[in-house]
Computed example of a mutant assay.
Amino acid sequence: MEQGAHQLTKGTLDEALKAAEASRTEVVVWRGKAEELEGEASRAAEASRVEVQRLKEKAEASWVEAQRWKEKAEDESQLEAKVTRAAEASVAVQAVLETEIGEHDALKSAARTAYEALEVKGVQSGSSLESRLIALSGQRALAVIASHYIGVDLVAISDGYVLPDDDGEADKAVMKLMEAAKDPSMVLAKLFEEEVVPPTPSADAGDPEA
């Protein structure tokens, strides 16, 4: 009887060992499957990460391209605005230039009329209008100097400035003299204005020879 019980116990143990071995084998199999699934999941995650990075880079490239086109459009808009402003400035400059030309022509015509009415002694009749104007201006200025300083050597004054030998110092001296003479020369010019450009006779004025 004891022998039967011993055999029963041994059989039970054998079955238990077989069941344990089967379980261990199944665990190994499932572990292998789990590792395989984990590997596939890892590869899928890596592929997804790479794809996401690629899409991100593509999106950044698209943003950079859009930004470049935006800047180009802004540059073109600014260029168009600059061209418009330049064209407007050109029109304004042209208008000013035409005005200046008109004033210059009017002044030249008035000066020519004045010189035709005046007899400038010591100046050849064939001299240009500019030469006659310069000669008259010099003549008037020297006459004023002579009236203030009796016995002054006008010939020496007509030789021009008395300046230092150094060119740089001479230029500075001339600029200083010109600045000092600026305001007084305007007053003197105003004084001679009616002599240089006689007033236009009134339409109601009678004929002096009448």
Rank of each mutant, 00 (worst) to 15 (best):
G4Y: 14
V91E: 08
Y115S: 04
A86E: 07
A210T: 15
L133G: 02
D171T: 10
R31H: 09
R68F: 02
E2A: 13
D207H: 01
L136A: 00
L177K: 09
S127M: 12
D166Q: 00
E103N: 09
L55H: 05
A81Q: 06
D75Q: 15
E116W: 10
L37Q: 06
A87D: 11
K33Y: 08
I157E: 00
E51N: 05
I134V: 11
T9E: 15
E38N: 08
I150A: 15
M178Q: 10
E60D: 05
W30L: 13
K72E: 13
G39I: 00
V155D: 14
A141V: 02
E46P: 01
A205I: 02
A135S: 06
R54T: 03
V174G: 03
L136P: 00
L13H: 09
D204P: 09
S131H: 03
L97S: 15
A111W: 05
A20S: 08
V123K: 00
A86Y: 03
K172L: 14
L191V: 13
A19G: 04
A47V: 04
V152R: 01
K190V: 11
V196Y: 00
A66C: 06
E80D: 07
I145Q: 03
A81C: 07
A66N: 10
E169V: 01
S131K: 09
A114V: 00
P201R: 14
Q53P: 01
L118W: 00
L17A: 13
D153Q: 00
V28M: 13
E169R: 06
Q139R: 01
L154K: 01
E209T: 13
D207R: 09
S158V: 02
V27G: 13
S77Q: 13
K182F: 12
R68K: 06
E195W: 03
R43G: 07
S125N: 11
A16F: 11
L188Y: 04
Q7N: 08
A203D: 08
Y149K: 12
G4Q: 12
